[in-house]
Amino acid sequence: MGQFIARRVLLGIIALMLAMLIVFSLSRVKGDPRYFFIGEDSLGIDPAVWEEWGRRLNLDKPVPIQFALWMRDILTGDFGDSVTTQRRVLDIIREKAPNTIQLGVVAWLLGTFVGVPLGVFSATNRGNTLDYIFRGFALFGQSVPIFWLALVLIFVFAVNLGWLPSGTKGEGVAIRNFVLPAVTLAWFPAASYLRITRTAMLEILDSEFIKFARAKGVAQAPVRWKHAFRNAIIPPLTLSVFVLFGLLNGTIIIESVFAWPGLGRLAIDALWATDYPLLAGLTIIYGMAFVVMILSLDIIYAVLDPRIKYN
């Protein structure tokens, strides 16, 4: 098992280094990378500043060395300074991250606790009206553009009914402000959970040991939850990491609809300000977070499912 985890960690590190190489190469495809780091003012670029940036980016050294030095900076937490605000990229990200994490976690919990039980219900009531309704809800959730769903929900619940605020987080943690963005974000994951749980449950419910348990006279509820659901948990568990990762994408879109002061909006603002260090820093941090999540999933698997072989 130790060897298994060591191998996964090694693969994760290699993937991360290659991902950093991709981000690094993107800054060089247009020739001189200095254009992405120096904010131009009306007088053009001061030659002294230009030279200084050449030194800071190690442009006098060969490209592989430049990459190695850049990577060393990042691993020591130095993602450079934002072009627009001149603040350290890591500080900006640290400041905005809690807002995105709160929203993401709320949406993730909502998606899980709606999608998984509905999936179990759908599987155990296969073919009845509610099963069709839930599957329709899932199909809808996987097909609508979320920015449009957000606007529709704003139109209904904020503009027409006036029940909920249409945007922004406000001070502190007010549940009212979370409802619309979280529901919008959670819809797609809930749909994915529903489908995957339903499939897994149907497969297990069809197996011999369930029939045997039923024949033995075990009641309906324990068969469903104790025998079947426990064995159907791996697919939704795998999905959960990808859902979390997908939510990071979702927040980029949703935060700009709801004027949410998080990392997603930061990314869009960075794009419009051509703030390469900020956007690249965000991309790498998200990549790192994903590697950590996948590794934790591998370890959880190994604990949960003793059938997994370590090779």
């Binding site: 991902a19 390469y276 956007l279 994903f290 996948i294």
Partner: peptide
Amino acid sequence: MRIVDAWNILPGLLIILVVVLVL
């Protein structure tokens, strides 16, 4: 496979934004 792994850990929308910023 290592290159595919690397692509998979890059957040899709963000890396797209980086490319749009650059190109």
